[in-house]
């Protein structure tokens, strides 16, 4: 397989982009959330895009940034999983291995000045252990019990930390869903490149489950009362 075979050193920019991805660890595993929007600049171009992607039996990756680069990542990870499967020897790649591999690819592409323009979260559950880690276009990596990419790092991460830190082993799936929903709502209210339609992924001992698209119910009536800027000046 020739990942980044091209040494095309002309720097690019992201074109069709996804916004934040959120993730947290809870009692039974890892939960991840991302909305269904792929923007073209400020245009809400594609409103039914899936940004959470299963890799093998134990892992989900969630992507912000360039969506075509993300599709390329999906493609070569699929190839990797097939290669691993065909060896049929009982050894398979867990989330930690997939994250390491992804980091190597991201870092080597940045070193060729031809990055894959994404911020990715890798979440998973294997052998009784949950895994959650980050990697981006620079090859920077880190793990924590709550993670958020893009605007989520500013808007959602403080909420996630407050709700989750120190309670990773008590949080139930219902509570985790509630936390995710409230964070996605904050993002929808404040991030102009976001959508009120999103998906949740849960990765537990039972494997990977990615939900159908969910809708955020929001209220905008307060907007009527806002005065002093925008169209209404008094």
């Amino acid at each position: 397989m020739s990942i980044a075979a091209q040494t095309d050193s002309c720097p690019r920019q992201p074109i069709v982009t996804g916004t934040s991805v959120l993730a947290l660890k809870y009692k039974d595993g890892v939960m991840m959330a991302a909305d269904n929007l792929a923007s073209y600049g400020s245009l809400a171009r594609f409103k039914d895009i899936q940004r959470l992607h299963p890799v093998g039996k134990y892992t989900v990756i969630g992507a912000g940034g360039d969506m075509s680069d993300f599709q390329y990542i999906q493609k070569f990870l699929e190839q990797l999983i097939i290669e691993e499967f065909t060896s049929q020897d009982g050894h398979d790649l867990g989330p930690a291995q997939i994250h390491e591999y992804l980091s190597q690819v991201m870092y080597s592409r940045r070193s060729k000045i031809n990055p894959l323009w994404n911020s990715l979260l890798v979440g998973g559950f294997k052998d009784g252990k949950s895994f959650l880690s980050y990697v981006d276009l620079l090859g920077t990596t880190y793990s924590a019990t709550t993670l958020a990419t893009g605007f989520g790092a500013y808007l959602a991460q403080p909420i996630l930390r407050k709700e989750v830190e120190g309670r990773e082993n008590e949080l139930t799936e219902e509570e985790a869903i509630r936390i995710m929903e409230s964070c996605m709502k904050v993002l929808y209210y404040r991030d102009a490149r976001s959508l009120d339609k999103y998906q949740l992924a849960v990765i537990t001992a039972d494997g990977v489950k990615i939900s159908e698209s969910r809708h955020l119910s929001t209220t905008w009536s307060f907007a009527e009362g806002i005065r002093g800027y925008g169209a209404q000046t008094q």
Partner: peptide, 11 residues
């Protein structure tokens, strides 16, 4: 003028 990709950051 295109945005130059900066391969470094400071952590």
């Amino acid at each position: 003028q295109q945005h130059q990709f900066n391969p470094y950051t400071e952590n």
